[in-house]
Design a protein around this nucleic acid. Structure first.
Lengths: 333, 333
DNA sequence: CTGAAAGCGCTTACAG
DNA sequence: CTGAAAGCGCTTACAG
């Protein structure tokens, strides 16, 4: 069935469309029997007020534009999220589609699904930096197509649109670079255990070390932040003071680790080699700048936009795209 | 006159509403006389297709949602722009208003004014990092209220909504900190000369040095990027190799300057003290972390959202707000 | 080639 | 307390 209208709700509840509208608007002077009938049917049908109709009637959009120069979007590269956002914004602009920001509120999980049912957007791109299980669940039965940047955990329905980086190869690249630099006692600062992308990096790293005949060193979990990188590095040094190589699953954690290493008197890269992941701004501003595994975040965002636009237009496209990761050599290795 | 409709255009052109619609849709099989009459009147009246009506008719929004967890917005702090965006997004979310991203295309200046006339948004926030004169001009006669983050150059009409940081005091704080650290040969890396905010910082710096009986040292312009900071620092060292203090008008330029200083054998802060501006992520990840003048970027974004929402709701609010800057002491001073 | 009319889905002033 | 009807602004199938 097509998106239900208020007429569908009214019919199902056996009342006039005016009454249904009143109930849905929260009016109190309506027969309680009718009220509950309307509320029940609205829920059953998954009714949500049509955004365009309300706007045409009321004259108010309920939206505010954020104007920014394109080169300001260009400056968005400080973080994973900012870079992906930048790519997506560019891709959407190229398709003459407006990007609408939908912050997912932890306290009100229903907001986004509701918004999607209102018809205000033709599709959504989800930038999955951290695993947000409830968000994934609440988008599983979206009435509009969803493109996932990063592979979602859990059930997202059949044939999802997924854009991800090749995390597994990224882990291999990091391990190989450390081994080729002559490192033999190599630890890892990985991401949260429930985050599949981090796990794949770790798997690649483990495989490549094993393949090279080197036993993987100590592993500590972080949460991708600078602070967690500092804490993780301190624990890594406790576990093996003679560590000569570290792979951190994000540049932020790597830059935290770098600071702890230097404070502990280790010279990087002389005593310890360090490889990060992401290739975001802090990788270039730290001292020494970080050798890191580059995720093509901007490309991922742009690709998500393109696939989604094509899907909405009814064109056939490859719905899963894993973009390559590459090693960017700077001075921490 | 209220926003003109296609009926207004049709009347003015002396044709039926169907004909006007055909012309506006680009149909070719319309009498040339009628065609040009419609086109002329549409232009005269500043007609733009009502977004809600088209959407209700056509069923397509022409928009795509970017779903992101709130803590991902929280990670937006790599740059001036990202932090302001983060604050604005939070402020809008609190008011239950959707943020719509409007990238300003250099090649198509008309796009944003057109969009605003379509009624798709109730207001706009402009994040002015660089001075974008043409953008300012093209928004001067916006049909919806505009909130400027950063003081716009040029004519923006009467009684504009402006949210800015106290750049002048920021410059004073930087100079005072350098002087109190015992520095006497203090150079400055400022912003582009046409950018009022950078000029105010420089003015504050100059005033405070003069007040302390210290002659301001050499000045070089940058464009707020890391690279421009590196180039500027190199020139500063040429002009005065015995410099013992530097104020850079952005943290990115400061981190570029830091690298050049260290490459030139200067220890920071032992030989040279360095103060940045903004307090964005790279200030905390550089080595040493930067002492910097903090702009409350997130507050500025949030304030812009709040003022705009209040204005749209018809509430009276203070339309100009200059938020305080503060010195954040880290280790480069 | 042009115009009168229907209809997208909603809300609310009006009549009962 | 409830319903029939008008109207927000647009586009297009239909009739001429």
């Amino acid at each position: 069935m097509a998106r239900p209208t208020i007429i569908d709700v009214a019919k199902a509840a056996g009342v006039s469309r005016a009454t249904a509208a009143r109930v849905l608007a929260g009016a109190t002077n309506v027969d309680p029997v009718m009220t509950s009938a309307v509320e029940r049917e609205a829920r059953n049908l998954g009714y949500e007020t049509n955004f365009a109709a309300r706007m045409l009637r009321g004259g108010r959009a309920g939206a505010i534009g954020l104007v920014l120069a394109f080169n300001e979007i260009g400056s968005l590269n400080g973080t994973f999220f900012a870079s992906a956002l930048k790519g997506a914004a560019k891709g959407l602009a190229a398709g003459d589609v407006q990007p609408v920001l939908l912050p997912a509120d932890d306290e009100d999980l229903g907001r986004i699904p509701k918004f999607l049912r209102s018809g205000a957007v033709d599709g959504v791109i989800v930038i999955l930096q951290h695993e947000i299980t409830h968000l994934v669940d609440s988008l599983a039965d979206s009435p509009v197509p969803v493109a996932w940047i990063g592979r979602p955990h859990g059930d997202v329905g059949p044939d999802p649109i997924v854009i991800d980086a090749d995390n597994h190869t990224g882990g291999i690249l990091a391990a190989r670079a450390l081994v080729e630099a002559g490192r033999r006692r190599i630890g890892i600062i990985t991401g949260p255990p429930d985050m599949e992308q981090a796990n794949e990096r770790t798997r690649g790293w483990t495989e490549e070390l094993t393949r090279s005949g080197i036993a993987p060193g100590p592993m500590v979990h972080g949460d991708f932040t600078v602070d967690s990188g500092m804490a993780a590095m301190a624990r890594l040094l406790q576990r093996d003071p003679d560590l000569d190589g570290v792979f951190a699953s994000s540049d932020l954690m790597a830059s935290g680790a770098l600071r702890v290493l230097q404070a502990a008197g280790r010279r990087v890269p002389l005593d310890v080699s360090l490889v990060g992941f992401d290739d975001v701004l802090p990788a270039t501003t730290s001292d020494p700048p970080l050798t890191t595994v580059r995720q093509p975040l901007e490309d991922m965002g742009r690709t998500a936009a393109e696939i989604l636009i094509a899907t909405i237009a009814g064109r056939e496209v490859e719905r899963v795209q894993i973009l390559p990761t590459t090693l960017v050599r700077r001075e921490s290795l």
